[in-house]
């Protein structure tokens, strides 16, 4: 930064006063930005925001936001790119804070909307990579930013989408985990997420189906892991716990069926749950519906 500061000051002193205004660090940064020399633009705009003469104007912060936003767009995945996005967001926020005339409001809102969308996408990518805490942080930041650009925004749909995806990703870890691992905390987290989605949208087929399968699979795994050396009393006790899980699964699977009676997986699920509950008549009823559905396709 010092590398540039000296020549800039020398340049300013040798330039007639009338031209100096055009060659202030903000203007120079803008020129560099327009010629896509982002490194130079960044250094100049960072000089400007340290200078009380320029850092109280919305224009300075707005340009800074644009410069950092475009730098982020060139290098989205690296830690530098992430930092550039954070600085862009902070700069646009600062612009809106001091832009009493709302001169840059529309530009800031559009840019923040774009940056918010990248946060949402990064939340999804982090879930794909099983970085659940990072994903949650990105999602929370997405919401916080979107509340600035659109205070009336209803996040229900997004919350459903995010929680459902997070739960389904956690479920994959749950199913693939070593059976000797204690999965209680993970299981609770998955159930809470599906319940949250159902509380927001009781007619969500995926949440109802997935929660039912989660309970059902827990029961099946419990039976599968039962040891042949278990004492009689324990055999009954474990069986009761398994039936509790199947009983918990049933209403969610019935709801999924009510919402979409022609979904094959749901019919298979109902047949399996009733079979587990030793209600063979109902199990065969849903199996028959499934067979009919498959034969008609």
């Amino acid at each position: 930064m010092k590398r540039l500061l000296v020549p800039i000051l020398v340049l300013l002193l040798t330039i007639p006063i009338g031209l100096r205004a055009q060659l202030d660090p903000v203007s120079l940064a803008l020129r560099a930005y327009q010629s896509k020399d982002y490194t130079k633009a960044q250094e100049l705009i960072d000089i400007a925001v340290e200078d009380d003469k320029f850092n109280s104007t919305a224009r300075t912060w707005c340009f800074r936001g644009y410069i950092y936003k475009d730098m982020y767009k060139l290098d989205r995945k690296s830690p530098d790119g992430q930092e550039q996005r954070a600085i862009a967001i902070q700069s646009f926020k600062k612009t809106m804070e001091i832009d009493t005339e709302a001169e840059f409001k529309n530009d800031c809102v559009q840019s923040l909307k774009f940056l918010a969308s990248t946060l949402f996408n990064d939340a999804a990518t982090s879930l794909d990579m099983s970085d659940f805490d990072v994903a949650q942080a990105y999602y929370d930041e997405y919401k916080s930013l979107t509340q600035i650009t659109n205070p009336e925004m209803d996040f229900t749909g997004r919350d459903v989408e995010f929680s459902l995806y997070k739960a389904s990703r956690l479920s994959i870890l749950y199913e693939k985990a070593d059976p000797t691992t204690n999965l209680d905390a993970l299981g609770v987290q998955i159930i809470e997420l599906y319940e949250k989605v159902i509380a927001l949208d009781s007619n969500n087929v995926s949440a109802n189906y997935n929660l039912a399968i989660h309970y059902y699979n827990q029961g099946v795994n419990m039976i599968d892991n039962m040891d042949y050396e278990l004492p009689f009393e324990e055999l009954f006790a474990v069986q009761e716990r398994v039936m509790e899980l199947f009983t918990k699964a049933l209403p969610y699977m019935l709801k999924a069926y009510e919402l979409d009676p022609t979904r094959k997986a749901t019919l298979q699920g109902l047949s399996g749950i009733y079979f587990g509950l030793n209600d063979i008549e109902k199990s065969e009823y849903y199996q028959k519906l499934l067979d009919e559905l498959e034969s008609n396709q």
Partner: peptide, 19 residues
Amino acid sequence: MATNAQTMNTAVNTRAKMK
């Protein structure tokens, strides 16, 4: 975000195992 449908465990016949 495309939600994955959880896979039902069909590998175990629960009644047969209990019996």
